[in-house]
C-alpha cells in the first residue's frame, strides 16, 4: 500500500487536530507507520486551520506538510468559500464535507470534477448524539467509509481509550455513536 495522506480543514476549536490524531493512533495501533500534525499558525478559536494524517506500511521520513492529499475532510462547511479546499487534490482524490447538501451541490460549489465527493450532516449528527455541535468524530466516521486502512472498531477502541477518563462513559458512547452514524449516512457522488 502506498502512503495515505489526509488533510483536515476546520476552524480552531472544532477538533480537527484531535480527529487527525485519533485516525493516526488507530492506524499505529494496528502496526502502521503514522504522522499526525496540525499546521500551527496564530492559534485562535474560529480561525481556519489545517491538520494532517499520514499512514503507511513503510516508515515515513518526509517531514513537510501535505501538498497532495488523497483525502480532504472539511469539518466546517463555511470554509468552502473561504479556503481553496481542493488545492492539491488529484484525479483520484476524495473530498468529504460536513454539510446537509448533496455531493452534486458540493461539486458545483467547489468545481471539483474528479474523484469522489462525500457529504454527511456531521453537525446534525453531533447535536443529536453528543448534544453539542462538535462534528470532528462524525467526520472521522465518514473517512472510515471511504478508506478501509483502519476499521471502525479499531477507531472506536482508540476513542474509548482516549475519552473514557476525560468525558465519562455516556459521552464516549455518544462519540462512537456519532462515528457510526456518519459512516452509515455518508452520501457519495
Amino acid at each position: 500500500m502506498a502512503m495515505v495522506e489526509v488533510c483536515w480543514h476546520g476552524r480552531g476549536g472544532q477538533g480537527a487536530k484531535t480527529a487527525s490524531q485519533f485516525l493516526g493512533e488507530a492506524a499505529l495501533d494496528i502496526g502502521k507507520y503514522i504522522q499526525a500534525f496540525p499546521e500551527y499558525g496564530p492559534e485562535r478559536a474560529g480561525a481556519p486551520m489545517k491538520a494532517f494524517t499520514r499512514i503507511s506500511d513503510e516508515p515515513i521520513y518526509v517531514h513537510s506538510s501535505v501538498k497532495n492529499p488523497d483525502v480532504v475532510i472539511i469539518i466546517d462547511p463555511t470554509l468552502l468559500g473561504a479556503v481553496n479546499v481542493t488545492e492539491g487534490l488529484g484525479d483520484d482524490g476524495i473530498l468529504l464535507v460536513n454539510t446537509d447538501k448533496s455531493p452534486a451541490d458540493i461539486r458545483k460549489e467547489t468545481d471539483f470534477k474528479h474523484g469522489k465527493v462525500g457529504t454527511v450532516d456531521a453537525t446534525k449528527i453531533a447535536l443529536e448524539t453528543l448534544k453539542i455541535p462538535m462534528p470532528n468524530m462524525p467526520m472521522l466516521g465518514a473517512f472510515l467509509k471511504v478508506n478501509s486502512i483502519v476499521s471502525i472498531d479499531e477507531v472506536s477502541d482508540i476513542v474509548k481509550a482516549k475519552f473514557i477518563k476525560k468525558l465519562g462513559e455516556e459521552k464516549t458512547k455518544a462519540n462512537i455513536e456519532g462515528i457510526k452514524r456518519a459512516y452509515a449516512e455518508l452520501k457519495i457522488g
Binding site: 493512533e25 495501533d29 481509550a161
Partner: peptide, 11 residues
C-alpha cells in the same frame, strides 16, 4: 483499553 498490537506509542 485498545488492544495494542504495536509496541510503539503515539507521542
Amino acid at each position: 483499553m485498545a488492544q495494542t498490537k504495536s509496541k510503539k506509542i503515539p507521542l
